[in-house]
Simulated assay, not measured.
Amino acid sequence: MLKVDQLSYTYRDGTKALNQISFSIPDHSKVAILGPNGSGKSTLFLHFNGIYLPQEGSVEVLGIPVNKKTEIDLKTRVGLVFQDPDDQVFSSTLWEDVAFGPENMGYSQEEIDRRVEKALKSVDMWDYRHKAPYHLSYGQKKRAAIAGILAMDCEIIMLDEPVAYLDPQGQDQLFSLLDELYQQGMSILIATHDVNLACEWADYIILMKDGQILGQGGTELLVQENLVNQARLRLPIVAKLFQKLNKDIDALPTTLEEAASQINQWVK
């Protein structure tokens, strides 16, 4: 799905956001990219849909090299949901906002109407189509931003800190929607600090710090204490609990399901 080779990116003020990073991500994945603030997560995301172009090295998305010739095409294939939906949902009504992308792609009005209706119904926001975005709750704005991505028929959706400012029920609703989209064939990437969320949801992990890759692979990376400390993160809560229990086990659990299975073995 994604292939990055020796990618570097430096901002105009001299800040080196990415420093010769290389990795690849399998097709149809749920990916969590974790790392402290300033690690390069957001800069990396902006390369995947052609907002930023590689200064050094290369990026391929769905087999397409990221460059000036492909940047417009990539924006229709890869959608980005910003951390703050107020930066993304800006039109007079929700309908107009979701229609913005298809309209700019030059589709017919009939096709625009079809895409907007399908997208809004997919995120359970059809009944709000005539509302102004500023009348929506934060969770509704997040879903509205996702609808704008769905209206473009994107194959990959990226979310920067998806649970920021959401209450627990809003978080559950958001990830229920993301799981539905994944089941429909979409690949999903999130940038987050939340190791518990990453362990429970993702099937592929990338750890970053100072514009470099510390590790990539399965969720077992997040119970390697030295690696997690290096990334300025914390062990998942279930792993910390099992450390306190001081039991002799082969590996710390990463999910509640793994923890429950281990505890059930002890009590039998």
Rank of each mutant, 00 (worst) to 15 (best):
H28M: 08
V78A: 11
K41Y: 13
D13K: 00
V4Y: 09
E71A: 06
G170D: 15
E257C: 02
W266D: 03
D179A: 01
S39L: 01
C199R: 05
S261W: 11
Q265C: 03
M186I: 08
C199D: 07
I157R: 07
S42M: 11
D210N: 12
P162H: 12
D5V: 13
I237K: 11
M186Y: 13
L241V: 10
D210M: 06
M1N: 08
Y107I: 03
S91D: 14
V78Y: 11
Q169V: 05
D13P: 10
G63E: 13
L53Q: 02
R234P: 02
L174R: 00
A145M: 01
I64D: 01
P102L: 14
C154N: 07
I205R: 10
N196T: 04
Q88N: 08
D73V: 12
D194M: 12
L46R: 13
M105Q: 14
S137D: 10
Q83I: 04
A260W: 15
H47V: 08
N104Y: 11
Y107W: 12
Q216H: 13
I33C: 07
H130I: 02
G57N: 05
L18W: 08
A151M: 04
G170S: 14
A259E: 04
D250E: 14
Y52L: 14
F82D: 02
T10Q: 13
A132I: 02
G217K: 09
A164D: 01
I146S: 01
I64Y: 09
N246F: 06
L222G: 03
A191T: 11
Y165K: 14
Q83G: 00
Q212P: 03
G50M: 06
F175Y: 15
P26I: 07
P253R: 01
W126P: 05
N264Y: 15
L189D: 01
K75Y: 04
I112Q: 11
N37V: 08
A132D: 05
L150E: 00
S8K: 10
L2M: 10
L46E: 15
D179G: 01
F23I: 01
V228D: 02
A239F: 07
V267W: 14
E110M: 08
A144V: 10
Q216A: 14
L34R: 00
A191D: 09
C154K: 08
S92D: 12
Y182W: 14
D210Y: 11
A99E: 04
E200V: 02
V59A: 08
R143T: 05
E220W: 04
V59S: 02
G50R: 01
D210S: 12
G101F: 06
Q109V: 00
D13A: 06
A191H: 03
D179C: 07
E117P: 00
T192Y: 12
L74D: 03
D160I: 07
N226G: 10
Y138S: 00
G215V: 01
Q83C: 03
Q109R: 12
V116Y: 08
Y182I: 02
G35Y: 05
P162S: 11
Y182K: 02
D84H: 11
Y9W: 15
K209G: 04
P253S: 01
R143S: 08
C199P: 09
N67L: 07
N226I: 12
K244S: 13
I149T: 05
N196V: 02
K69I: 04
Q265W: 09
L46F: 13
P253C: 06
G218A: 05
V228M: 04
